[in-house]
Nucleic acid binder design. Structure first.
Lengths: 106, 106
DNA sequence: CGTAATACATCGTATCACGAAGTATGCGTA
DNA sequence: TACGCATACTTCGTGATACGATGTATTACG
């Protein structure tokens, strides 16, 4: 997918991937892969950004003797997803503008 | 609309605005306003980019004693719009992923 | 004559996705 | 043991790009 199109979609995707259950970096990438692929450097940048924006919290926990960072969505993060649904209406109208056939010009 | 979300949408919007009829800078901004707003500096940057990518051609013409630059879409530009329709399928699947309610987690 | 609308252009800045590279651990296998 | 591989997270530099600010110039209107 076009890199420009991914912007604005990525943040919400990451939030959606931890919405129902806390998750961690490596798993998020795998879960998102069928929909949108992102590199590790991209993901950790996003996670840090979302943390700064208080959309998620981080908790380090041990798993199999190794440390993992688990990410938990906040109310603000949930609201971000809701806001996206509103933005979607605008995107739909743009889509219709772009794809409409101009009958009068034929 | 979120600035990140606009990226990737803007180019195609501009192309769509000149698809059926040649247009010029100021008019493009006005035509797009109901769907997506962009500043002049942004538009001229985009127009130059699309010209470099051979997605449109420019022709300077006189209008009311003043020079105007008219933009005309090319085959490559039209193809860009078609490609966008394909990308749309991916975007739709992302939308469904983001908005799906997780029944199993309730 | 002054103001607004029209029309195009340039510059600097902030945001951001990504590749490359690095660090470290656990596990299977030869 | 030694090696490769998957897991897991981090840092750095770069290129793309939307935008505000600013500038130039003309036409239209009162």
């Amino acid at each position: 997918m076009d890199i420009q199109l991914k912007r604005g979609l990525l943040d919400v995707c990451v939030l959606a991937s931890i919405k129902s259950k806390d998750s961690y970096g490596y798993k998020i990438i795998k879960d998102l892969k069928p929909y949108i692929s992102l590199s590790e450097s991209t993901l950790y940048t996003i996670l840090k950004r979302l943390e700064t924006a208080n959309m998620l919290t981080v908790k380090t926990a041990e798993h199999n003797g190794r440390l993992r960072k688990y990410y938990h969505i906040t109310e603000i993060g949930l609201k971000r997803i809701e806001d996206f649904k509103d933005e979607w209406k605008e995107i739909m109208s743009i889509y219709q503008f772009v794809t409409k056939e101009d009958e009068q010009s034929e």
